[in-house]
């Protein structure tokens, strides 16, 4: 596998004695969108902090684009862009000045055309001469994204990019993430909006209490853990579940049958068809069939609960 980030036995114990990361092993593939999911306090921001140089690791190694983040920090950091979780911006600078500053800080010669393109892509162009203090929260977040992209990073970290962000910005942001992926940028994001991970990510990692408990292709994950809940509304009440090979649950009022299928795609459809056929053979008449696939969120809640 061509890893753009390779994390081995990474450990972080804060001065308070809190062990925020516990021997993390994780590889991020070049060019993928990787979503890191986990409840509050799981260690997502800490993990990003270590890779970006904000937090000192206490054990293990991190290689970013072939460079050790401690020994060869200069080369490693030059490849990485970070949009932090907190909205931290200069107040009295203009948008243009602060984004240009970031590019210089990361060691690149000024390139007004590139800055112009970023600002236009993020709908910040008409605000370029405004002082940041005068911008709304959403606009400030766009500025942070522009700063992170100013030095043309190969790896972009987005820490909870859509927390408290309006619909328009969220849409713009996903459009931008898509474009960056097309350009070959690797994107690692954390989010609480699981639908977004489900929609955007190629792979998903789940972290809880400082441990990575699962890393999986999104589709494989859905297949492995995704469940389909099938609800069948009956025409007439039953006293007991019908006598068929599949195990069905009868509701108390005797009007609905429910059962759960695991797996994804064809096997599932076949499962539903088998049950319906069996019911028809037993002359059990039904008026409705409702299937509901479990979301990543359900899977995630399940996983975290199982581990705790």
């Amino acid at each position: 596998m061509d890893s753009v980030i390779s994390i081995k036995q990474l450990d972080k114990t804060y001065k308070s004695g809190h062990r925020a990361l516990k021997s993390i092993d994780l590889d991020i593939k070049r060019g993928e969108i990787f979503a890191l999911l986990g409840p509050n306090g799981a260690g997502k921001t800490t993990l990003i902090g270590v890779v970006c140089g904000l937090v000192k690791l206490t054990g293990g190694t991190v290689i970013a684009d072939g460079h050790d983040i401690t020994k060869d920090y200069r080369a490693a950091r030059a490849k990485i862009g970070l949009v932090p979780q907190e909205l931290a911006t200069d107040m009295f600078e203009t948008v243009w000045a602060t984004v240009s500053f970031s590019r210089g800080l990361f060691g690149l010669a000024p390139n007004p055309a590139h800055i112009e393109k970023i600002l236009k892509d993020l709908s910040l162009w008409d605000k370029k001469d405004n002082k940041i203090a005068t911008l709304s929260g959403g606009m400030k977040r766009r500025v942070l994204i522009a700063k992170a992209l100013s030095h043309e990073p190969k790896i972009l970290f987005l820490d909870e990019p859509t927390a408290g962000v309006d619909v328009e910005l969220r849409r713009d942001m996903w459009a931008m993430v898509g474009r960056l992926r097309d350009q070959g940028v690797t994107i690692i994001l954390t989010t609480h909006y699981i639908e977004e991970a489900e929609e955007m990510a190629d792979r998903i990692g789940v972290i809880n209490k400082g441990e990575i408990i699962l890393v999986e292709e999104k589709h494989a994950l859905m297949k492995k853990l995704g469940q389909t809940r099938v609800t069948i509304g009956l025409k007439s009440k039953l006293d007991a579940p019908p006598d068929i090979p599949q195990k069905l649950d009868l509701s108390e009022d005797g009007e609905t049958l429910t059962f759960t299928l695991t797996g994804e795609g064809d096997s599932e459809d076949a499962g539903v068809a088998d049950v319906l056929k069996a019911l028809m053979e037993r002359k059990v008449d039904f008026k409705s069939v409702n299937t509901k696939r479990s979301s990543l969120e359900d899977i995630f809640v399940d996983l975290v609960e199982k581990k705790t």
Partner: peptide
């Protein structure tokens, strides 16, 4: 104070 130090700490600077 403002938190913008994150950028300095994540930059390739000595």
């Amino acid at each position: 104070f403002t938190g913008t130090i994150y950028e300095l700490l994540s930059a390739p600077v000595s």
